[in-house]
Amino acid sequence: GVAEYLTPVLKDSKFKETGVLTPEEFVKAGDHLVHHCPTWQWSTGDESKIKPYLPKNKQFLLTRNVPCYKRCKQLEYTEQEKIVQPEDGEGGWVDTHPTNDNLTEGSGTAEMSNDEKSDSDEAEDMKNNLGNAMSELVLGDDDDDGEAAVMEDSDLEDEEDEAEVKPISDREHVALKTSESGGEIIQTRTYDLNITYDKYYQTPRLWVSGHDENRHPLSVDQMYEDVSQDHAKRTVTMESHPHIPGPPMASVHPCRHAEVMKFFIQTVTEGGRELGVHMYLIIFLKFVQAVIPTIEYDYTQNFTM
């Protein structure tokens, strides 16, 4: 917008005093994130939208095809939930798992603890189930069967390709997953996440765009199902992405980011330690998890508050 256009690029670090970032600090924190969590990568974005205050190949960060197995309402909020309260007492962030005092506790919720089994344990479970999964081909009952049928091609030889793994239906997967016995591909919602540098608010800004189980783009209302109730519509807005062409995209509004960040910095400082600016995005991703608790993006690293 005009305000952003008129805002001068932040030159001197004010990170410690106010929780904001210079573009250089954003790049430094981004490099740190990409190094420790390589599912995140730098992107150039659309050539015509390159911002001169950031390196050409480091315009924004992205991670793709991030699974989102559950809707927010499926999460059981408990009395353990507490509010992370910035000093002025307004708003604040809901910390959905305050009992985890160590940020290495990965994927969000207690219900997902089966995800934290080692790969090899999972492999055992999976092996036991794959036989069943492979032997049946169950078709999903889509609403648009009629239209889909029209687009099917009778000219193609639809002979069995015996060397192709056949999927089973979405609903089967959900059942298997919840009974902790899933041993196959899960057709699930996925999200692409972007972190841009917001010149006006001088903070990172998170953008999300999702696909459903059939990999069709999610509508805004569908995406709200994956935003915590405390934040849907209040914190998440639709706006033009600064680097990607196309329709407006959902974004976590950055107006409170600096404040929350300052709160984190103070907490760490009071604990007698110092929070380096390179840690900014790791912490940022930790606190936006309160907004999108079921999107399982990667962000963790050994860091204790």
Partner: peptide
Amino acid sequence: ERGKLGAR
């Protein structure tokens, strides 16, 4: 989506 050869 129906597991058939066809466009989307």
